[in-house]
Amino acid sequence: MKTAIEIENLAHNYGLVEALKPLDMSIESGTLFGFIGPDGAGKTTLFRILTSLLLPTQGTAKVLGLDVVDDYRKLRPLLGYMPGRFSLYQDLTVAENLQFFAKLFKTTIQENYHLIKDIYDQIAPFKNRLAGKLSGGMKQKLALSCALIHKPELLFLDEPTTGVDVVSRAEFWEMLRKLKNYGITIVVSTPYMDEAALCDKVALIQKGKILQTDSPNNITESFVKPLFSVKSNERNSLSKDIETFGKTDSFYWFGDSIRWIGDDEKDADLLRIYLQQKNHQALEIKKIKASIEDCFMDLMKGNYE
């Protein structure tokens, strides 16, 4: 399989702040690759280097076989980039923005319209509205259309779903799946851990360091500690009682239940007896498969200096 991105010993500092620690990795062509991590993890810094907008402090990166520093002129026409902050011209209309980006990349809207049709059709009724007057969801669709209009080989999307509601997020990921079918390599970043499952491969990133890179399934399978979901009718006392139980690696709330990680799987039976003695009604303790968020939290603990 062809390599779309090859990174060697790449790092970036802002003054004394190590935004990106020395990093080696590669991303294959045709994948939907996700960088999953909170704000300040280094996602935007990495994207800016890979799109040739920021010079790395050290190391090299090749994107589509081209060096991001030496060959930036050849590289840029091949890339689509949707920054985290809305960066289109607010005082141009929807149609004017699209026209502008098509012209800038020496193409026409007609030539690649098939790529953006599904997305652009949804905002076409507002094509004469100023971009600055669009709702958040429509701005996002216009930004994606503008990033795609020159049929890039590789698309970078920096936190396209941050602050977006769950329904619109699900729709956005469906659009990405369709774009992938056109053979475009897609690199996307997100702070929402549950979106990792929608990628072919992900890198979990925190404090400028990649914690793990693999398919979402392999990452969750590699979580070997005994993990249980604990539920009871006495929600308020549940965490206090687990805290006094002792034989615990860690525990935390996860939606309507507590995730309990034990040192030994057998301790779950002891936990059940202990909580029954504490009068927990409708107690439900079951072994579960880890989610990406469980894995991330476990890996984070090893990444504190």
């Binding site: 991590g37 909170p38 704000d39 602050g163 702070p191 851990m193 991330f296 984070m300």
Partner: peptide, 12 residues
């Protein structure tokens, strides 16, 4: 949206 973009441990 007080926790938007905050890591999962700090969120809790």
């Amino acid at each position: 949206e007080p926790t938007s973009g905050v890591d999962p441990i700090t969120r809790r």
